[in-house]
Amino acid sequence: MIKLEKVNKWYGDYHALNDVTGSVAKGEVVVVCGPSGSGKSTMIRTLNRLEEIQKGDIQISGKSIYGPGVDINKLRASIGFVFQQFNLFPHYSVRDNITLSARKVGGMSVAQANALAEDLLNKVGLSHKIDAMPANLSGGQQQRVAIARALAQRPPLILFDEPTSALDPEMVGEVLAVMKQLASEGMTMVVVTHEMGFARDVADRIWFMDAGEILEDTTPQEFFTAPRHPRSRKFLEDILQRSVV
């Protein structure tokens, strides 16, 4: 479904992504972890071209997203993206947040789109909030609406960029539960997160990134019990220490 081939990106002199190579199969859940500044967010943002790359190639469903004649809007409509800061549209109701892309890009009728919104809100457990404005929702609720909004594009693939990092601790669980459910339904997901519990329980594979490189591409079991790279060992130690304190 996703294939990265020697992807390189620079911000000026700073080498943000260094020969990143990897692939995600259909239905797979890949959790990307690593210390901050390791290039995780940059990497996931290149997958729908929110960030451009300077070298290498990225293929989605067998087609290069940098190929000639690629319709960038069509490509993005086929990929769900969930942001750290939710980024709901504050001037629209929950319903309109969810249906906007379906109506304007997918060409869905208002009635169809509204039915879809009801359906998806049900799925994320917020059907009673359909007419609410985003400002009246808690962070966890906003993020669940954002997930419903991504689902409304009916994408075969959803990207999550630190979906729980901006949430109060007591709201992390409700968002992870929705993501877990999606994973169990066979959605292809790439998730940048620090939630190691989620990684252990849900991920099919873990990518450990540091300094713009993928240092480990392995199963959760191996990653958590026998990390090969010294930097992933240190990362896990730091994380464990923090959760104990």
Binding site: N48, L50, N73, K74, R76, A77, S78, I79, F81, F83, N87, L88, F89, L100, S101, K104, V105, G106, R149, A150, Q153
Partner: peptide
């Protein structure tokens, strides 16, 4: 805001 709009295909 712009990123979320563009990411949804607008």
């Amino acid at each position: 805001q712009m990123e979320a709009a563009r990411a949804s295909g607008l």
